[in-house]
Design a protein around this nucleic acid. Structure first.
Lengths: 189, 189
DNA sequence: CGCGACGTTGATTTGCCTCAACGATTGTGG
DNA sequence: CCACAATCGTTGAGGCAAATCAACGTCGCG
């Protein structure tokens, strides 16, 4: 629990009492590599905070191909917001890419906490601000760069991922085929 | 001011006193068609709420072509979050697409209000949740649909925009050239 | 009227996909 | 502990969706 407490304290000035009210609702869960936390079509109930490991969210497109929407590593949240907020069946899958440890909190508990804690509201608002910025940049990259450039940019800005996710997942996240990524890598700079 | 008060009340249960503390910081601004609220390279200071009209945010890519990142119409917010939060020079331009009326609030005033108002925190958190879901869907569409499908989806789900934005801007938002959009439209269903 | 902004159409090019074949590595059961 | 099957990455040939480039029509407006 110290990981997430520290993470929150990095964003808001929060009392131990308030923090404990929050962490009391968290549940630790271990997930083995390839194990699912959410499958499309089911109802998503939890937000997940990654304590250790690496997860991905993805959907299956109409051609039957996996398309990775997001990765999450240590100190990051992952969930299907659409399903959680709108209470619709999930369109996304969430799956471990390594043996991992997550903390989970049900959306309804979180909503209840928001009623009483300004600081938690603030923390999650700030997380969403960061996510918004990241999403915006992703669109900008997709509109501005060739496949080769996107790969090089990702590699240079996220070296830690290069070791941890297989190449075909990186290809999927960047929006192209494994074959194409392989060719792009083949051409030396 | 009634527009934005009603908008906020749609999301949170807020007292008139709290609301007034917020609206007191807002400033009304008229923007003529093609007028800029933000130019890239300058520092972004405000969030903008559209009372009437239509705005767009865009950047110029390395080939010198405008790429539209977002539109905003009535009851919607638009800003360059990256610039506001990280206090960096804006990468985006914000410009009116019609004669418009906006309410603006400086980021620093908003931050101050967040310190004292749980409800405002909550409101902006909820706005960001919705934005997050929209961003996620946009990535999904880009990964799942052909140009023709993206156009038809947009047309069927956002009919109000079809009347209001010129075709070349729609093309830019969808990520392709005006020529291609024209051809896609040429093929009857 | 004449000019600039916007949309259309056609010919050509290109970035990335598809499909197929083939190594290398891993892991798993006999 | 070997044999074999999966899994993952690489390479090449061919195809296609969308971009590029260029020309032209139309409209609104100074």
């Amino acid at each position: 629990m110290e990981e997430i407490k520290n993470h929150i304290r990095r964003f808001v000035n929060i009392s131990d009492k308030e923090l404990n009210a929050f962490t009391k609702e968290l549940e630790l869960q271990e997930v083995k590599n390839k194990e699912f936390l959410l499958k499309e079509g089911t109802h998503s109930l939890h937000h997940y905070f990654v304590v250790k490991g690496c997860l991905r969210s993805f959907f299956i497109n109409k051609k039957g191909v996996e398309k990775i929407v997001n990765f999450a590593i240590e100190d990051w949240w992952i969930s299907d917001y659409d399903s959680l907020i709108n209470k619709t069946p999930a369109y996304l899958n969430i799956q471990a890419v390594e043996d991992s440890i997550v903390l989970k909190i049900p959306q309804e508990k979180l909503e209840a906490l928001f009623e009483t804690s300004t600081n938690l509201n603030s923390y999650f608002r700030k997380i969403l601000e960061i996510v918004r910025i990241a999403d915006q940049k992703r669109v900008q990259f997709m509109f501005n760069m060739s496949g080769k450039e996107m790969y090089e940019h990702f590699r240079d800005n996220n070296p830690e991922f290069m070791q941890r996710v297989p190449q075909y997942m990186l290809a999927s996240y960047l929006g192209f085929t494994p074959e194409f990524l392989s060719k792009v890598r083949g051409l030396q700079e």
